[in-house]
């Protein structure tokens, strides 16, 4: 978003008292203001998801856009939820780690299953962000090269060093995804 567009979207909110946010398929109409259940103009999307909607699967680590732990999908693309104000997200569709399972069957997303199969986590704190970044990659590019996986995940911090298993998991999920089509 350019600076001009940002300003414009700010103007568009003037006079609005609520935002509409679709999270994991469910529409939330959130009043703007202070207090329980409301969205303060200074609230980040990660704060709204975690503290207002109770979706604590999205993690906050650096809280300044450096580590990727808070990655969610917005209209299918990976964004850092700690770097967005919730009031900027009016009308958007957000998917968090809690929304990756098939809502009807409860079946895991193939990426989630692949992370399990490869033990592609250690402490697990960075895993939700890692999976969401991988999901955004596969949405765009269903059969990435290993280099493309590494590039797509290079904004995701993991200190336990599970990178090698994660690359295996994403490549494997991609391979199975392409095969099943």
């Amino acid at each position: 978003m350019t600076r001009q567009e940002k300003k414009f979207s700010g103007v568009a909110l003037e006079g609005k008292h609520r935002i509409n946010l679709t999270v994991n398929g469910q529409l939330y109409e959130l009043a703007i203001g202070r207090g329980a259940g409301k969205v303060n103009p200074s609230d980040t999307l990660s704060f709204t998801l975690r503290e207002t909607l109770g979706l604590t699967g999205t993690k906050v680590s650096c809280d300044s856009g450096a580590c990727g732990a808070c990655t969610v999908l917005m209209d299918g693309r990976a964004v850092l939820s700690c770097m967005m104000l919730s009031i900027e997200c009016d009308g958007k569709e957000v998917t968090t780690i809690e929304g990756l399972k098939d809502p009807k069957t409860g079946e895991l997303d193939p990426l989630q299953q692949s992370f399990i199969d490869h033990t592609a986590f250690q402490c697990g704190f960075c895993t939700p962000g890692m999976i969401m970044s991988s999901k955004a990659l596969l949405n765009d590019n269903p059969s990435p090269t290993e280099e493309e996986v590494k590039e797509a995940l290079s904004g995701n911090f993991c200190r336990c060093i599970t990178h090698y298993h994660v690359v295996d998991a994403v490549m494997d999920a991609a391979k199975k995804g392409v095969e099943s089509k």
């Binding site: 975690r50 699967g57 968090t96 989630q112 992370f115 399990i116 033990t119 697990g124």
Partner: peptide
């Protein structure tokens, strides 16, 4: 190789850390 007991919770965002 066996599945870690907390695997499902970790990949679905259910694993509880103190700030959750």
């Amino acid at each position: 190789s066996t599945q870690r007991k907390d695997a499902l919770d970790i990949v679905t965002g259910k694993a509880k850390f103190i700030n959750d």
